[in-house]
Design a protein around this nucleic acid. Structure first.
Length: 396
DNA sequence: AAGATGACCAACCGCAGTCAC
DNA sequence: TGTGACTGCGGTTGGTCATCT
C-alpha cells in the first residue's frame, strides 16, 4: 500500500522549491516545463534549498517565537526573518494547523463528531467553514477525520457520505415517479455535492409533498429565523441588484419574523443572538457583517433546541392569535458560475404552524421565478442528537 | 521475524480570490 | 485595467506506525 517515496528526491533537488505558492510549484520536469510555459513563477517558488517535509522541534520553536514577537502574516518574508529554511506557505500551514495556541489536538469528542456531521450535511466539503464552527479544530484536522473516520462510518450505516442520503440498494425497485414539476432555471442550489442543472419545484398543490431527494426542503420543517435584515444586506452586497438576470432575488418582506426572537425588520440581526463561541465572540457580535450573518445562520441551524423553542413559540403565538404566522427559511444558494454562496431568506404564510411550500405559497412578490430552494438544514439534523454543547439557547 | 497491508494525518500542491500598485 | 504578490482553500500525497499474514 505504501507508495514509493518521492519526497526525498524532491527535498534533495528542491527544484521549483517551496510549496506551490501561486500554483507554480513543481518537482517534476513536466511541471517545470509547464511553469516555463506559463511564465508564472513566483519568487518563492524559484528559491532552492528550502526544507520540506516534517517540521523539527527547533523549527517549530523558531516559528512560534517569531510569530509571538511579530505576529501573524507576511508569510512570504517571515521564513527569512525567522531564520527558517521554509517557504512562507509552509510556515503558515505549520502555524495554522499545529503551532497556534488555540489549536486543540487529540481525540474528537462525540459532540464534535456530531457537529461535523451536521455541518457537513449542510455545507459539504467546506472544511474551513466547518472548522470555523468547531473551536480549536482546524480544517485539515476535520478533513482528515472525515476522510478516515466519518465517511467510512456513514458508509457502514448505508449512507452516502457525499450526499448524506441512503446508499442505493441493489435490486431495489425503481422509485415512484415524482409529482409533476416545473423547471426553474439556474442558479444552482448546492445541496451538498449535488449541483443539478435545474432546480425543480413541484407544481402540485399538495402541501404534503416531500421531494424524493430527502435533502431538499421538507416543507413542514422550516427553521424560523430572524436574520432577514442582515440577509437583505447580505444578498444586496454580494449580488448587487440581484435581479432576475442573476436569478437570485427573493428578499422577503421582513415583517414580524422570528417570533420571540428579536423583532421585525430593522432591528439588529443579533437580537437574540445565538452563540456557540466564547464571550469574546459574543462581544464582537455587535455589528452586522456577512461573516457574522453566516456565522449566526450556522449557529441557528446546528441548534435544534433553538429551532424547537422557536417552533414552540410559533405554535403558542398561533394558538393565541388564531392567525397565520409568517414563516421564514434560510436557503443556501450557490451560483452556478462562481460557486458563491448566497443566503436567501424566504417567507410564506400558512394556517398551519409550519406549513411551508407550494401550498403555502412561495412569496412570489419577493422571489424571482428563478429562485431555488433546497438544503433543508432542519431536515438535515432530524436524526441527530438533541443537545449541542456548543450552542447556547437564545434568551427570549 | 519479516514483509504486506491498512490507518492515520502532517504536509504539499495547485487553484482562485483579493488587494496594492 | 492589468499584473503580481499574498493568502486561503480543498484535494491529494506520502511518511510513519500498527496490525495482519
Amino acid at each position: 500500500m505504501r507508495k514509493p517515496s518521492s519526497r526525498t528526491t524532491q527535498a534533495a533537488a528542491a527544484v521549483g522549491g517551496g510549496d506551490g505558492g501561486g500554483g507554480a510549484s513543481s518537482s517534476s520536469a513536466a511541471a517545470v516545463a509547464a511553469n516555463n510555459n506559463n511564465n508564472k513563477v513566483t519568487p518563492c517558488c524559484n528559491k532552492i534549498g528550502l526544507k520540506r517535509g516534517p517540521w523539527t522541534p527547533e523549527e517549530d520553536e523558531l516559528l512560534a517565537n517569531y510569530i509571538k514577537r511579530e505576529g501573524e502574516g507576511r508569510w512570504r518574508t517571515l521564513p527569512k526573518k525567522a531564520g527558517l529554511l521554509r517557504c512562507g506557505k509552509s510556515c503558515r500551514l505549520r502555524w495554522m494547523n499545529y503551532l497556534r495556541p488555540s489549536v486543540k489536538r487529540g481525540h474528537i469528542a462525540p459532540d464534535e463528531e456530531d457537529l461535523i456531521l451536521r455541518l457537513h450535511r449542510l455545507l459539504g466539503n467546506r472544511w474551513s467553514l466547518i472548522a470555523g464552527r468547531i473551536p480549536g479544530r482546524t480544517d485539515n484536522e476535520i478533513k482528515n477525520y472525515w476522510n478516515t473516520h466519518l465517511s467510512k462510518k456513514l458508509i457502514s450505516q448505508g449512507i452516502d457520505p457525499r450526499t448524506h442520503k441512503p446508499l442505493p440498494i441493489q435490486q431495489a425497485p425503481p422509485p415512484p415517479p415524482p409529482p409533476p414539476i416545473t423547471s426553474i432555471n439556474s442558479p444552482i442550489i448546492q445541496n451538498n455535492n449535488i449541483l443539478p442543472n435545474q432546480i425543480q419545484v413541484p407544481t402540485t398543490s399538495n402541501s404534503n409533498y416531500i421531494p424524493n431527494n430527502n435533502s431538499l426542503l421538507e416543507f413542514d420543517q422550516v427553521p424560523t429565523l430572524n436574520y432577514q435584515t442582515c440577509l437583505t444586506q447580505l444578498v444586496d452586497h454580494e449580488n448587487g441588484n440581484m435581479d432576475n438576470n442573476n436569478n437570485i432575488s427573493m428578499i422577503q418582506n421582513g415583517a414580524a419574523a422570528a417570533v420571540g426572537v428579536g423583532g421585525g425588520a430593522g432591528e439588529s440581526c443579533y437580537e437574540g443572538q445565538i452563540s456557540n463561541e466564547d464571550d469574546q465572540e459574543q462581544d464582537d457580535m455587535n455589528y452586522c457583517t456577512n461573516d457574522d450573518v453566516f456565522s449566526s445562520f450556522l449557529n441557528s441551524l446546528i441548534n435544534e433546541d433553538v429551532f424547537n423553542s422557536q417552533n414552540h413559540l410559533v405554535q403558542l403565538h398561533q394558538q393565541h392569535h388564531h392567525q397565520p404566522h409568517q414563516q421564514h427559511s434560510m436557503i443556501n444558494v450557490v451560483d452556478q458560475n462562481n460557486d458563491h454562496h448566497h443566503l436567501i431568506s424566504s417567507s410564506s404564510s400558512s394556517t398551519q404552524a409550519f406549513a411551508f411550500g407550494p401550498a403555502a405559497g412561495w412569496d412570489h412578490h419577493h422571489a424571482s421565478q428563478n429562485m431555488i430552494m433546497a438544503a433543508n438544514p432542519t431536515a438535515a439534523f432530524h436524526h441527530h442528537h438533541q443537545n449541542d454543547h456548543q450552542v447556547e439557547k437564545p434568551h427570549f
